[in-house]
Amino acid sequence: MGLPAATARCAHVTLGGSTGDARGQSITCELRGSPKVSGKTITLTRTASGRWSCSVPGLEARYLPPECTN
């Protein structure tokens, strides 16, 4: 997919799912930055309809991107 293994805000970037099937594909990023977000994992998951959902378990709601849930 051409994504780097790490970025300034992601300690680790991981891809999941099959490239031949849009359902269940995912991009995971272990966040780095302030102590409020560092070490948390944000996951983007592709739905059967082709849309992306976002979740960040354990992160305070005020730090979530608007499209994400915890």
Rank of each mutant, 00 (worst) to 15 (best):
12 H>R: 14
52 W>P: 06
34 S>Y: 11
60 E>F: 11
28 T>I: 07
26 S>E: 00
59 L>P: 04
56 V>P: 14
26 S>H: 00
32 R>G: 09
52 W>A: 01
63 Y>G: 12
63 Y>A: 09
35 P>T: 13
61 A>V: 08
49 S>T: 13
23 R>V: 06
39 G>C: 07
52 W>D: 04
65 P>I: 13
25 Q>V: 01
43 T>Y: 00
44 L>Q: 10
12 H>Y: 10
28 T>A: 05
26 S>V: 00
53 S>P: 13
48 A>F: 08
18 S>P: 01
63 Y>Q: 14
55 S>Q: 14
43 T>V: 05
3 L>G: 15
1 M>L: 15
42 I>N: 00
62 R>Y: 15
21 D>G: 07
66 P>G: 15
34 S>T: 15
49 S>C: 05
27 I>H: 00
2 G>K: 04
68 C>D: 10
23 R>E: 10
39 G>L: 04
35 P>W: 09
41 T>W: 03
53 S>N: 12
43 T>S: 02
16 G>P: 02
30 E>M: 08
4 P>A: 15
70 N>T: 15
62 R>T: 15
31 L>Q: 12
47 T>E: 15
35 P>Y: 08
21 D>A: 07
37 V>P: 03
50 G>Q: 03
63 Y>I: 12
29 C>D: 03
6 A>Y: 08
36 K>F: 10
67 E>T: 07
47 T>Y: 11
52 W>M: 07
68 C>G: 11
2 G>A: 11
8 A>D: 14
67 E>C: 12
65 P>R: 11
3 L>I: 11
60 E>I: 05
8 A>G: 14
7 T>E: 03
50 G>F: 01
29 C>V: 10
56 V>Y: 02
24 G>E: 00
48 A>P: 04
68 C>Q: 11
